[in-house]
């Protein structure tokens, strides 16, 4: 059996299995328009890749996928560059904090538990919200319920925030603090969970920032590139937790998968897709939750130093 040795993880893997993971993630991104990092990191855990390396290397793969994804959006003019830049600035701060927190967690020996907790918490919430929302949308489509009236929510406190600037592409005039802190929070998730954060960013852009749906995905991808680049660099620099061979395998698989996903996605309805995505997200959250609460097979774990 062909094996490939990972120089940083210092173990060998079956390259076809890892490429297969990349394909799955690529299909997810082609189908749902999300990066799929939330699925990738747990898959890497399953084959024994140390959690910190799974998280660091995921960020590297997402960066490559986001670059190839954003180009089409840029060409169509569906990227709010100013908003993207502000989110990126926030993301740099957040991801630097996240990498530092990860370094502390590694030193404390709590990195695997912490990463899994973040996963259960965020995937649980997002999966549940997405599930309810997509079910409702599907019910509307079937004519069971009437579509709720869309009203732009007027969050009073949001408009009271200072430093308002204009975002012409999105047609918004809002406080810069809002996208800055959003970017910061998602940057932390990128560092701690190895996700692009699109699954939080996209709804937040629509409901919190009030951006038009057309520019949301492109702008999200745009900022993910820079934040994951920052995370890749910092994880490699501070935590030695990016394995370049693992990245190469995942990227190869991702390219193939994105092709497949885009084709399959055209044949399915948006709300059906979202129900499916929500179910995958929830399944991952539940699986990791059980890993945290069930008595482990062995109470002991080993880490060999130099």
């Amino acid at each position: 059996m062909l094996e490939l040795y990972l120089p940083v993880a210092q173990m060998s893997v079956n390259p076809f299995l890892i490429i297969g993971f990349g394909v799955v993630i690529g299909i997810m991104s082609g189908l749902f328009g999300v990066g799929g990092g939330f699925l990738l990191t747990p898959l890497l855990f399953m084959v024994g890749i140390p959690p910190s390396i799974a998280v660091g290397t995921s960020a590297n793969q997402i960066m490559a996928a986001s670059i190839s994804g954003v180009l089409a959006h840029l060409k169509e003019g569906n990227v709010d560059l100013r908003m993207g830049a502000v989110l990126t600035v926030g993301g740099f701060v957040g991801s630097a904090i996240g990498v530092a927190v990860l370094k502390v967690l590694i030193a404390l020996g709590q990195v695997d538990v912490a990463i899994k907790l973040f996963y259960v918490f965020f995937l649980g919430i997002v999966g549940l919200l997405m599930f309810i929302e997509s079910l409702r949308a599907y019910a509307v489509f079937l004519g069971w319920v009437k579509a709720p009236k869309r009203e732009r929510k007027n969050h009073g406190w949001i408009h009271g925030l200072p430093f308002r600037i204009r975002f012409p592409v999105s047609g918004r005039y809002i406080s810069v603090l809002l996208p800055l802190s959003l970017g910061c929070g998602i940057g932390m998730l990128t560092a701690l969970m190895g996700v692009g954060g699109g699954f939080v960013m996209v709804p937040a852009m629509i409901y919190l920032l009030g951006m038009p749906t057309l520019v949301v995905v492109g702008t999200s991808l745009f900022q993910i590139i820079f934040v994951t680049a920052n995370v890749t660099f910092l994880q490699a620099y501070a935590n030695q937790s990016v394995d370049i061979m693992l990245s190469v395998l995942l990227i190869i698989g991702g390219v193939v998968g994105a092709q497949v996903g885009a084709r399959v996605g055209k044949a399915m309805r948006g709300d059906q897709l979202r129900i499916l995505l929500a179910m995958i997200v929830l399944a991952v959250a539940i699986k990791i939750f059980f890993e945290l609460v069930l008595t482990p097979g062995s109470l002991y774990s080993l880490e060999l130093g130099g």
Binding site: V8, M63, I67, S68, T232, F233, A236, S247
Partner: peptide, 25 residues
Amino acid sequence: LAVDKPAYYGLLCVVLAVISGFGAA
């Protein structure tokens, strides 16, 4: 490279993602 010159290694990973991202597109 990863252990002794992590900054260069980090940059290499970023460059890899840039090249493969454009290549994939």
